[in-house]
Computed example of a mutant assay.
Amino acid sequence: MNDSDSPGQNAVEALLQGARSFREREYGEPGALMPNLSSGQQPGVMMIACADSRVDPALIFGARPGDLLVVRVVANLAPPPDTDSLDSGVMSAVELGLKTLGIPHLIVCGHSGCAGVRTALDEALHDVVPEDYCLHEWTTVAVPACEEVIAAHGELSADKLARHAEQRSILKSLENLRAHPWVQDLETNGKLTLHGWWFDIATGDLWIADPETGDFVSV
């Protein structure tokens, strides 16, 4: 079988063509953006977003290169500081953004139909543990949020319960971030604002958590 006939090859070729088009578009004109970014970055916002292929933060929020520092992980989770090395990947990015670059806003952005949160919800509801070790270890971070949702809304359908769990896990990730003393210090001293957002894939609506109540409101 030729390489051109291999599964997914058309998708790879599309990416290569995309890179060529990007170079022509963003480097070809005088004063183009990308060459000016080659000396460094100073984004105004950091985002912890999901790895899901349907929720590209730059595309959804109309951001240009250099606008957003994004770390994408399954279920957009930020673990608490007592999880050994589990949080090192996410928190190394958070340290880069908040300490090194001095970014004043950090958004935890979740979404509807999140498979990672659903995995944690299944474990909390039915003690169903995924076979993949790394996925299980990671999504256990969302289990406490799922357990809180089950206790408060256990009578709801699975889909409605999942939505509550997705939003509650965002709030729990914000709590976990604040459990790092240096993050809490930045927030207390007015150098950092934390935000919780939830994106509905089906409708395109964005829901933002009220900082006082934790309730999500469509904007």
Rank of each mutant, 00 (worst) to 15 (best):
G110H: 06
L96F: 11
P130D: 04
R118I: 04
S92P: 05
L135S: 04
E137L: 07
L106Q: 06
S88R: 03
C134P: 00
I103M: 07
T119N: 09
I103S: 05
P144W: 15
E131M: 08
V94H: 01
V143M: 10
S92I: 01
V128I: 11
H126M: 01
A124T: 10
V128H: 06
A124E: 10
L106V: 13
R118T: 12
D132K: 08
D122N: 14
G116Q: 03
V90A: 03
T119V: 13
G102L: 03
P130Q: 12
H136F: 15
E131L: 14
V141W: 07
D127F: 13
T119H: 04
I103V: 14
T140C: 05
T83C: 14
P130A: 05
C114M: 13
A142C: 07
L96S: 00
T100R: 00
A120K: 05
L106N: 03
V108S: 09
L121F: 06
D132L: 15
T83H: 10
D84F: 07
L96T: 03
S92V: 03
A124V: 10
A142Y: 03
D127N: 14
L96V: 02
L96M: 10
A93I: 06
M91T: 07
D84L: 09
V143P: 13
G97P: 02
A142W: 01
D87T: 02
D132Q: 15
G102Q: 02
V108H: 09
P144D: 04
A120D: 02
E123I: 01
T119I: 14
T139S: 04
L101C: 05
L121T: 04
T140D: 11
W138M: 04
H105E: 13
W138F: 13
E123Q: 08
T140Q: 14
T119E: 11
T139H: 10
L121M: 06
H105T: 06
G102Y: 00
E123R: 10
S112P: 09
C109Y: 05
D132E: 14
H136M: 11
E95Q: 13
A120Y: 10
Y133K: 13
A120E: 07
L125C: 10
P144G: 06
G110N: 07
